[in-house]
Structure formats: C-alpha cells, structure tokens
C-alpha cells in the first residue's frame, strides 16, 4: 500500500514539475470548487450545446410558423396556434392511439415473456448458457435489418411466418397478409418488437433473479412455504424493481419507436401503424413544417417526461418497501 502511495506521489510530483510556471501560478490561487468547475465545464458546455439549447430552441420554434426549407422567408410568432391545431387534429390523435396500442401490448408481452424466460434460464438446466446466447441474438441485430427480414418473413407468398401459421392452422399461406391487412398490421409490429426486445427484459429480470440470496429460499423451505408462495412472497417482490426498470427503459424506447416500424410498414397500410414518431418525422423533415412539428415534439417530450417521472416515483416507492 505504501509502495502504491509512493508511486502516486511520484506521478503527482512529475505532473507538478511538468506544469508550466505561468499556469501553475494561475492555478495555485484557485479553490477546489473552482478547479472542479474547470474540469466539468467542457462537459457542461457540450451538454448545453447539444441538449439544452436545442430543447429551448424547439420550444421557441413551436410558437412560430417557421419552415426550415424556406428559412429566407423568415417567420412569425403565432402564439399557441400550433398547439391548438395539433390538439384538434384527428390524425394526430390517431397516431397517438396507434402508439398507445403498440406501447401497451409490447410492454405486456415483453414483460410476461421476458420474465418467464429469465425464470426458466435461472433454473440452471443443462445447456442454459447456450440457450441464453441464442435468446439474446435478436437484440444484437440492427432494427433496420430486423425490419427488413421480417418483411420477407411476413410475405404472403414466400414468407416463413405465413407458412408456419398455415402449417399450424391449415389455412392457405397467402390467404392473410400480416403487414398489408388493416387488422393484422398493428399486431405484426408488436410481434416483431416483442421478438427483438424480449431478451432485453429477460436479461434485466435475470439479473434480478440472481441477486436474490439463496438463504431466503432456504429459510422459506424450512418454513415449509410452497413454491407458489415462495414465488409470490420472495421472487416477485424482489425482482419487481428490476422488472419496473426494464419496463421504463422499453417504454421510453418504444414511445419513440421509428426505424423498425418504418422498415416494416412505413406506417401503412393507410395510417394504421403510423406511430407518433413517424408522423413527427414526416411533419418535420418531409413536409418541413418546422414550427408545427416542434410543437408536436414538445407535447411528446412533456408526455414522456411526465409519465417517466411519475413512474420513477412509483419505482422508488417499490424499492423502499
């Protein structure tokens, strides 16, 4: 330990000697707090430049009729008109409904399947390491790649998915279209997202399950608690904070889901899979309604931020229990 300290001391001495005199003179008079600020200021400046300023700028633009592709025309302040239009726009409400459907079902399915898989993997059966790796593969792929190859899987004439369903149900494979049918398309995107991200939920749940000390279960065994009782009274409460964290991460991610769905359906057929983020992208970078899309972005931001805050409070309450 002493030897290690002397090495550190030596490095500090070398650094002090290497500091130019004029710099050393300036730094010598600074307080610890000032030096701390000097160290963190690059990060703070970067954060302000790429996070805070764009956010403020977006809020500012949301009160204007600015169009980025016609910047030379300037802009006018139009007050709350963009917000009023958005909140009265039935198409916007439709995209929010689509987003809610996607969000709710992916959360439910991924939570159930992710927890179930984690519970199975945690039983340390033979080859569980291999199966863990296999299960994790989908989340290692790029969403664009996943979207693309699922469009082939869903292809009514050659798609494996259709053939698999046809094999089980006896229906004609080309008698249904997962991404072309108004009723099936919303489920098609839910299935793909669930396939891709259930392993992520599983991974977090697995961490939760492995963090439960064995002696708790041993004590429960001594008390002759049934497996069901152990699950409800030990496993679930102790994994719940992890599970809630996974839901939070997936919820935020899926609220802004874009790439996977664009590759799969482009928001179609019609607009039945047009999520809020796809609509936002179209308004901002295809229609170039910068002011309007800024207002929509602000609304979405406030929604996610508010919901996430409430959720985090609930999560903390669960952890304190």
């Amino acid at each position: 330990m002493k030897e290690q300290k002397s090495v550190v001391q030596k490095i500090a001495d070398d650094a002090a000697r290497a500091t130019p005199d004029n710099v050393a003179r300036q730094v010598r008079g600074l307080s610890d707090k000032a030096i701390a600020w000097i160290f963190i200021s690059p990060t703070v400046i970067l954060l302000l430049a790429i996070n805070i300023f764009p956010l403020i700028w977006t809020v500012f633009l949301s009160f204007t009729n600015y169009k980025a592709n016609r910047a030379s025309r300037g802009y006018e302040f139009i007050g709350l008109r963009n917000y009023e239009r958005i909140l009265n726009d039935s198409d916007i409400w439709h995209t929010l409904q689509v987003t809610a459907h996607f969000l709710c079902w992916t959360m439910v399915l991924q939570t159930l399947l992710g927890f179930g898989l984690a519970w199975l993997i945690n039983r340390h059966f033979r080859g569980h390491g291999f199966w863990t790796t296999v299960i994790l593969l989908p989340m290692m792929l790029s969403p664009a790649v996943v979207g693309n190859f699922w469009t082939f899987l869903y292809q009514p004439q050659i798609g494996l998915f259709n053939y698999a369903v046809a094999f089980i149900t006896g229906a004609d494979p080309s008698s249904f279209q997962m991404i072309g049918d108004v009723n099936l398309a919303p489920w098609a995107i839910v299935i793909v997202d669930t396939w891709m991200w259930t392993p992520y939920v599983m991974l977090i749940c697995l961490a939760g399950l492995r963090s439960i000390p064995d002696y708790i279960y041993e004590a429960a065994e001594v008390d002759r608690a049934s497996k069901w009782r152990q699950f409800w009274s030990i496993t679930l409460p102790m994994v719940l904070p992890f599970l809630m964290l996974a839901i939070l991460f997936r919820g935020i991610e899926n609220f802004k889901m874009f790439d996977l769905v664009v590759e799969l359906t482009s928001g179609g057929p019609g607009s039945v899979t047009e999520l809020a983020s796809i609509n936002l992208k179209r308004e901002a970078f295809e229609k170039w309604r910068t002011g309007y899309s800024s207002a929509f972005a602000v609304i979405l931001f406030v929604t996610v931020f508010g919901a996430a805050n409430i959720y985090v409070k609930a999560l903390n309450a669960v952890k304190r229990r």
Binding site: D91, V182, P269, G270, S271, W288
Partner: peptide, 20 residues
C-alpha cells in the same frame, strides 16, 4: 409540393389499401 404530396399519399393509401 412535399406537403401536398404527403397529404395525397395518406388519403389515397387510407382509402385504397387500408379500405377506410
């Protein structure tokens, strides 16, 4: 034109493909 085109894309796809 882009705004006009995207509006037409939506209305036509809603009616023709999504059957709404």
């Amino acid at each position: 034109y882009a705004e006009l085109l995207l509006a037409m894309q939506k209305r036509l796809h809603d009616y023709i493909v999504a059957d709404q």
